[in-house]
Design a binder for these strands. Structure first.
Lengths: 115, 115
DNA sequence: ATATTATATTCCTATATGGGAATATGTCAA
DNA sequence: TTGACATATTCCCATATAGGAATATAATAT
């Protein structure tokens, strides 16, 4: 078998640095393909292809206006990643910081509960 | 050119679902290769190979005790991912939730400052 | 010394990629 | 209608997988 498809899920899709760069650019504002070609200084097919992968996993959405295709980020789709990483957060920091981290966690939990 | 190497960075390494599964298992406790073979129900070479990728990007560390190689997660290495996703968090939630999200952010920032 | 256990590495193959180049498709403007 | 513009797709290739099978390496036990 070959490696996991880039469109398998959000994790696979953002494995490619260029696609992360696209998302970083698009989060600022929606842009057309040509806008991105200029901003990234990549070839147009390159932009379109990476956008396709991002769209396949719903990390970007597309709005067509005549010849122009506006792409925008769908930030919510990154939540699974945040949540996945979250389960490791409690172990962040070295041994010396463990206690402090633990107390901070407790405080944070309380804050969350209050909301 | 071919696709980005899995050991290019942490993002690429966790693109593979099996490697995420390994990390999820190892975060509970350090384990040897055979422990993982049993827990995951994968072949031994499969476990070793995926561990190698994770180790190359420092997501796991290895401690050798005789024949046994104990692997453990290095949770801090996931921080870059958390930070990368963070820049998109402020846009989470639909339009209706935007205001609430905005206010929550402000409160959170204040909490952070107080610590 | 030798068999056994634990782990890593090598060899193989199928497959999917990222990128370049060329081309197709779609839409607008003159 | 026709040319220009915007975007997508196809064709090509080099490369790096993931996985299975076999084998190598390392360390222990008997």
């Amino acid at each position: 078998m070959a490696r996991t498809s880039t469109t398998n899920d959000v994790f696979s899709a953002i494995g490619e640095p260029k696609r992360r760069a696209l998302l970083e650019q698009l989060v600022l504002q929606q842009m057309t393909v040509s806008d991105l070609v200029e901003a990234m200084e990549w070839s147009q097919p390159m932009v379109s292809k990476h956008l396709k992968v991002l769209k396949d996993v719903n990390l970007v959405s597309e709005t067509k206006v005549g010849r122009f295709h506006y792409y925008r980020v769908q930030p919510d789709e990154l939540r699974p990643i945040q949540e996945w990483v979250h389960q490791f957060e409690k172990y962040w920091g070295g041994a010396l910081e463990q206690l402090d981290s633990y107390l901070t966690d407790i405080q944070k939990t309380r804050d969350d509960d209050e909301r």
